[in-house]
Design a protein around this nucleic acid. Structure first.
Lengths: 193, 193
DNA sequence: GTCTATAGAATGATAGAC
DNA sequence: GTCTATCATTCTATAGAC
């Protein structure tokens, strides 16, 4: 299988049940301890197998980290591709923002880790697939604006997504969080006069 | 010295030059590798001394992490106290937001780590001094509003501060970043009609 | 596919010489 | 204050039995 040519969604769907168990346990640990502070021993303990069994599923720790990211990001990739299919219109832009907020809220426990864990972010930035995904996302949301104003707004928008894992909003239900986030973040897009 | 009763600023000013060298090196490593992936050996190497010399300055790794946070957060504490001295007015609220943005931009390299490093955040949340600082900050910015709307806005505001370490804004100069951030984040405060 | 056993390196931390 | 030397522990990763 030529995994190099596959999309995130295709890759994510290829994992066996045993690999999924490893990915789920790893995600939970990454979320509350950070990647750098999570060992393969901890993951093995939580899955209920030995460390060697984990190494049978994944060759290295980095592979586990990337698998976690693939599973979490596959929905985002699909959304960006759909928006691109709608053309670069303002409607596509508005739709994508709403869709990204939906995904972000539904994955709220993991989002903080995906956006800001130093080890995870480093691994992701080395992946061309991820770089291309982010630049497509940015292209739909901000068009060809590249000035300081657009850069700051894009950065605040990205950071704002991470707010869903803030403990301030722990008790806010999903629907309310989606609605309020959209109201607060939509003004950051260009051409929203 | 009764360090338990001291403010962050007082604590930060007590560190010796040798301790400051350790704190500076640790901060730089924490910023680009994360706390959990930074070892005392790396810090010692960067300072140019042995690991044992670092242990002479700080008893544990946790002490180093907290010292880094104290130094970075002492300005914030001062700002919050000044705002509280102005009374709970709307002017105090506006002034504090601008001041926090100033501090955030001036420490832009470290802000992402302070806001989101899992290990650092865990240590900080165990400190009552930090908890009190955050609740005072929140009280000035959002008064006594505690509804879902205010919670989401507070979370977005906090996350928005972290945007200054996003690589999108790496080339934006400090003054522009300050100005644009203020424009984008001010509408999140209550009573801003 | 999961195990035991282990290699080899690095970790946080300490003792004691200078 | 900084060093060397060392401790016990943990780490990632592998080899080979079942």
């Amino acid at each position: 299988m030529n995994t190099a040519a596959m999309s995130l969604g295709e890759r994510a769907r290829q994992y066996s049940p045993a690999q999924r168990r490893t990915i789920d346990a790893a995600l939970a640990l990454f979320v509350d301890r950070g990647v750098g502070d999570t060992s393969l021993q901890m993951i093995a303990n939580d899955v209920g197998v030995t460390k060697a069994a984990i190494y049978y599923q994944f060759k290295t720790k980095e592979e586990i980290v990337l698998a976690v990211a693939e599973v979490e990001l596959s929905g985002l990739e699909e959304a960006v591709d759909t928006a691109l299919g709608m053309g670069g219109s303002i409607q596509a832009r508005q739709w994508l923002l709403a869709r990204v907020i939906d995904l972000t809220v539904s994955r709220r426990r993991a989002v903080g880790t995906l956006l800001s864990d130093p080890v995870l972010v480093r691994y992701l930035n080395e992946q061309e697939l991820y770089q291309r995904l982010m630049s497509r996302l940015l292209a739909v949301l901000f068009g060809h604006e590249v000035g300081d104003k657009a850069r700051v707004r894009a950065a605040v928008l990205a950071a704002g997504m991470g707010s869903v894992s803030n403990h301030f909003v722990l008790d806010v239900d999903d629907d309310t969080l989606r609605r309020e986030l959209l109201e607060v973040l939509r003004p950051l897009l260009p051409d929203d006069s």
